[in-house]
Design a protein around this nucleic acid. Structure first.
Length: 809
DNA sequence: GCAGTAGCATTTTTT
DNA sequence: ATGCTACTGC
């Protein structure tokens, strides 16, 4: 089959010639087959959850290659995460015995980085430019504010970081931005100064990788034309998650602006995505790119992949029914050929504590009686804080578990320290790295000295490294010694293999020695040793070359392997060290070790996207939590929450549990919640209530909350019998899914305000905001506050001692 | 320079 | 409640 990839295979040459029963195409359903064998035209593939999206993408590429329609060098496939890119490569090489070297398959940032390395001079960057991760970016910003004498109270570093990242995601430079007010004017100015600082130090942040490579292509026509001619097939994964800039970047590779209109240049763009799984608007993702794409690329009709291979019927009914409540959709319905399966089990518990206990009991049953491996069970929640209660219960029950999230390998402090030394070997003017380790391990350089050094650097207009001689006294001597030490380390590393360079730095910097003396240092030393291993495997298997290969402008066929270094268009080489540092910044590593362990999986719903499990628990299904209260004020926000719920539901193959608690510890206070509206948006026929169904103030206005509002006032938290050890057998009557008419003893406090009792679920009237419904009550007595969803003013928290709320009959 | 402490925020996250 | 940042005092 390799002969199919002979040089000279040109795009759009021959009509596809593979028979439909070819092994590549055999197992595809009609829609998948249609997507895979599409002629070279633009296409939007609406790929529902579990519909074989990755399979379509990889088979499409394989088909293009196998039919000789494209050479590997003509393919550009882009994903969001390294994980997705790796999976694509792995599955592709399983499909075809092929050399993946010539193909550009990677993340947006990875591919942009590759472009910038190849054309760094054109892009205005030094050959050894390094990447600033989010942490580094924040410290760079803090440093900038300090240098400019801007009060951190007036301009919050985090806010400025958000502002800058947001601007870049929209493709905006400071000069493109108009200041509506003084505050914005200042931020734009700071953005400008931040850019200067980054340029001076030879570093780029994540947003800059994207924006700079966009500008590179935009402003250099020969280069753009070169890449346009090269990449005949552009494939984009998770298209619903693209931001403005990423879409603009794709358009640059797929055509030109002409008279303000976009004109495709003949390449074929296949965008694959699912608008119903768009859950990253908060970080700049723009679902609107999907409809823009349809319009601007003249898509007749999207190809819909609606056949689901993951879940049983009831789970899909629930997902379909729920998402149907969203207005803004392209429209799509999942179907399965599997049976209906079990109904979704819904349960209400008195508290988050008991919710956790109930989940644990159910997990026991799943593993012991149904023989489910623990790693096939996922506990999902809306926000990370919710993991605590679950973790505590799992710990006490002795059930192994694994929590996703938290620090990743390359983000650990000790690793960042080591990397900072390595970066300084390559680029001594990297002030962020300089500051990180100038006094770590401690070497008598204090805040005073650093202050003077920064002052000197500012005055001299130079880097901290170059300013050390300007500082006098003992501090100055220490600084000079530090720089001398760096010089020695650099000297020693010349011509050495990467492994030895890192080992040398770990020893010479004193890092290992420092951690050896520390009580908790053992793990850190282990991590540092792991860093050496990571470098070793990076050099050998990963082959740092791949990261930064550039092709000569007169490209022909796959790039030749490079051994000593990485060729750029000017024939310069990038050292293995630079390549490894880039790798560390671009791929922060796994979230946690022991991935393959037999452990129950805990994660946020966001983190679960793209994963699947036999059994899934969605916990904390309460108003204010899921949907989250911060999202309730806008329709877009609420719809995104609903999509999030959709993602959560579609993670489950066979069993799905939905739990909610009446009370929950949040921010150190007990809060009272009503069940999530999403529970009401599920099809009743697919649900099995394991506790008496509590009506929430359902259906919005005029809807009854009959059972909900009738509880006894100001009762102590009751412990209904069904709250404890709810294993199947000892469930009291009513548990077996037969809804019980009696309302459970409730625990919402009735709060007296203006002589009237206010309770959760109650319809109320406010003199200013009008009619509303009480979503939650928090606190006692004079501190009591109520969260009220007002019909026309959105959701507000009101202090009951102040607000005039009257119950509405 | 470091330890102890007061203040503060606390949805979701990849690169 | 809790964990992180920033500041004060030795």
């Amino acid at each position: 089959m390799t002969d199919l990839f002979a040089d000279g295979a040109t795009p759009h040459r021959a009509p596809p010639s593979l028979p439909p029963d070819h092994p590549l195409l055999r197992a595809l359903n009609p829609e998948q087959l249609a997507a895979v064998t599409l002629p070279p035209v633009h296409a939007l593939v609406l790929a529902g959850a579990g519909s074989g999206k990755t399979r379509v993408l990889t088979t499409r590429i394989a088909w293009l290659l196998a039919t000789g329609q494209a050479s590997p060098g003509a393919i550009l496939a882009v994903t969001f995460t390294n994980k997705a890119a790796k999976e694509m490569l792995a599955r592709l090489s399983a499909l075809l015995p092929l050399n993946v070297r010539g193909m550009w398959i990677g993340t947006f940032h990875g591919l942009c980085h590759r472009l910038l390395r190849a054309h760094h001079a054109l892009a205005g960057l030094p050959a050894t430019f390094q990447i600033l991760d989010t942490q580094d970016q924040l410290s760079a910003i803090k440093r900038l504010l300090k240098a400019l004498g801007v009060d951190e109270e007036r301009v919050k570093p985090k806010e400025l970081q958000w502002f800058i990242a947001g601007a870049k995601e929209d493709g905006l430079r400071p000069r493109d931005m108009a200041a509506r007010d003084e505050d914005t004017r200042q931020k734009i100015e700071l953005y400008r100064r931040y850019e200067e600082q980054c340029q001076r130090e030879g570093v780029v942040d994540f947003g800059e990788l994207m924006l700079r490579s966009y500008e590179l292509l935009r402003d250099h026509e020969p280069l753009r034309v070169h890449y346009q001619r090269r990449f005949r097939h552009l494939l984009i994964d998770e298209f619903q998650d693209t931001n403005r800039l990423q879409y603009a970047w794709i358009k640059l590779l797929a055509g030109d602006e002409s008279g303000g209109r976009f004109v495709p240049c003949g390449n074929a763009v296949m965008a694959v995505g699912d608008d119903d799984q768009s859950i990253y608007a908060f970080r700049g993702a723009r679902v609107g790119n999907m409809s823009d794409f349809v319009r601007e690329f003249g898509i007749d009709a999207p190809i819909k992949l609606e056949q689901n291979y993951r879940s049983v019927g009831h789970i899909l009914h629930a997902a379909n029914h729920l998402i149907d409540h969203n207005r803004q959709r392209l429209g799509k319905n999942l179907r399965t050929e599997q049976g209906e399966g079990d109904r979704l089990r819904v349960v209400e518990l008195p508290s988050d504590f008991e919710e956790a206990q109930w989940v644990i009991d159910e997990i026991r049953q799943l593993t012991r009686q149904d023989g489910l491996p623990p790693q096939e069970i996922a506990l999902l929640y809306r926000s990370n804080a919710q993991s605590r209660a679950l973790e505590g219960a799992l710990f006490n029950a002795g059930i192994p578990y694994r929590v996703y999230g938290g620090l990743r390998f390359f983000e650990r402090a000790e690793i960042k320290h080591a990397l900072a030394y390595l970066r300084l070997l390559e680029n001594p003017h990297d002030d962020t790295s300089f500051l990180r380790v100038v006094n770590f391990p401690p070497r008598g350089i204090g805040a005073r000295t650093i202050e003077q050094l920064q002052q000197a650097a500012r005055e001299g207009g130079c880097s901290l490294h170059d300013a050390v001689t300007a500082v006098g006294g003992k501090g100055g001597a220490h600084l000079v010694a530090f720089v001398a030490k760096l010089d020695v380390m650099r000297e020693r590393s010349v011509g050495r293999p990467l492994r030895e360079i890192i080992e040398g730095v770990l020893a010479d910097s004193g890092l290992v020695e420092h951690y050896r003396a520390e009580r908790e240092g053992a793990e850190r030393i282990e991590n540092l040793e792991e860093l050496v291993n990571a470098a070793e495997s990076f050099v050998s298997q990963e082959g740092f070359g791949r990261e930064a290969v550039a092709l000569p402008l007169d490209e022909t066929g796959p790039a030749a392997p490079v051994s000593a270094g990485v060729e750029t268009e000017t024939g310069e080489t990038v050292s293995p060290l630079v390549a490894f540092l880039t790798h560390a910044a671009l791929e922060a590593g796994d979230h946690q070790a022991q991935a393959g362990q037999a452990a129950v999986q805990l994660m946020t719903v966001h983190a679960a996207k793209g994963l699947e499990f036999d059994a899934v628990f969605i916990t904390g299904l309460e108003e204010g939590l899921f949907p989250h209260e911060n999202s309730l004020s806008s329709l877009d926000g609420l719809e995104e929450e609903r999509r999030l719920m959709y993602v959560a539901i579609t993670r489950a193959r066979r069993r799905l549990y939905l739990t909610h608690a009446q009370t929950r510890m949040l921010h150190g206070q007990t809060r009272y919640h009503i069940p999530s509206r999403f529970l009401d948006e599920l099809p009743e026929d697919s649900l099995q209530w394991l506790s008496p169904r509590r009506a929430r103030a359902a259906g919005g206005w005029g809807g009854g909350w009959a059972a909900g509002g009738a509880g006894a006032a100001a009762m102590p938290v009751a412990q209904p019998a069904w709250g404890r050890s709810a294993l199947g057998d000892d469930r009291p009557a009513g548990m077996a899914g037969i809804p019980v008419a009696r309302a459970p003893a409730r625990s919402e406090p009735a709060v007296s305000a203006s002589g009237a009792e206010i309770r959760t679920g109650m319809a109320v009237f406010h003199t200013k905001f009008g009619e509303g419904r009480v979503l939650a009550i928090e606190g006692q007595g004079a501190d009591a506050r109520a969260q009220v969803d007002f019909r026309r003013h959105g959701t507000k928290w009101l202090a009951l001692a102040v607000a005039k709320l009257t119950p509405v009959a």
